[in-house]
Amino acid sequence: MSATARGPRAAAPGAPLRGALATGARLGLARRLVIGLPYFWLLLFFLVPFLIVLKISLSTTALRLPPYEPLVTWAADGVMQVKLHWSNFGFVLGDELYRTALLNSIEIAGVSTLICLLIGYPMAYGIARAPSAWRNVLFLLVALPFFTSFLLRVYAWIGLLGRNGPVNDLLLALGLVDQPLQLLQTDFAVYVGMVYSYLPFMVLPLYAAIEKLDLTLLEAAADLGARPVKTFFTVTLPLTKEGIFAGCLLVFIPAVGEFVIPALLGGPDTLMIGRVVWDEFFSNRDWPIASAIAILMLVLLLGFVVLLQRLQSREGRA
């Protein structure tokens, strides 16, 4: 960090004039713009929207536009009345449907994350240990799906898993089944879609962690007589923990709130929380309940991130 970065302006944001005079008026204006413009944008279009969601989650539906009651009303004598309806949260938590959706989302996202890890780790390991000429090509091949449409990649599975799709054809040809299986609109299809879509998110951080691994440590373990399996579990795995944490975070969080995959591949009984928010909002037009579910989902995800960070820092100290 340069010395000018810690000018008086940084210490006293409330005294722009003095600061500007100290570091040169032109630079002061530039600095204010550079920080101020994105700050203002993110406050207005990211933070304020959250506060509105929070506000609406404490309101009740109404037959008006926008379809919720205002929190603050003014009585005739100029007295401000604030009505907070905490009941939305109680309703969501108490209701069987929402609870199932929440638990289902956690389960589907959790199992998908685990499967991604089990498939992704050997892949990342293979890429990191491949001959260097191959490594860049393989890396690009993992990164490419990031750029190709998520929606279209999920769509590809509708054809593959259909009644007369190639997966069923294969099962029939192998004689494993007598008649086509109902694969689409099942939880199985949702798992396939999840693992397929989020696998690159798991492989890339794992690859970064495994690539950094000091090979001499593995050789040392081998020289000391450790078998490959033992070396893997006592040296490789602990040293790449950071990549595992990052990968799990990158898969689990978006997977919990996923909407497109359960909507396209899941059945009517595949309840996931992202889909419930969508339906409450678009079909039932119940904005307060949709907002309350969104807030609960956010709290859950924040809790997960904090938990993972705690776990990681504890590992780091040990």
Binding site: F45, P49, F50, I52, V53, L249, I253, P254, V256, G257, E258, F259, G274, V277, W278, F281, A290, S291, A294, M297, L298, L301, V305
Partner: peptide, 11 residues
Amino acid sequence: VLPEVITGLSL
């Protein structure tokens, strides 16, 4: 890291 459903709804 925010689920798209929440970003969309809040905006």
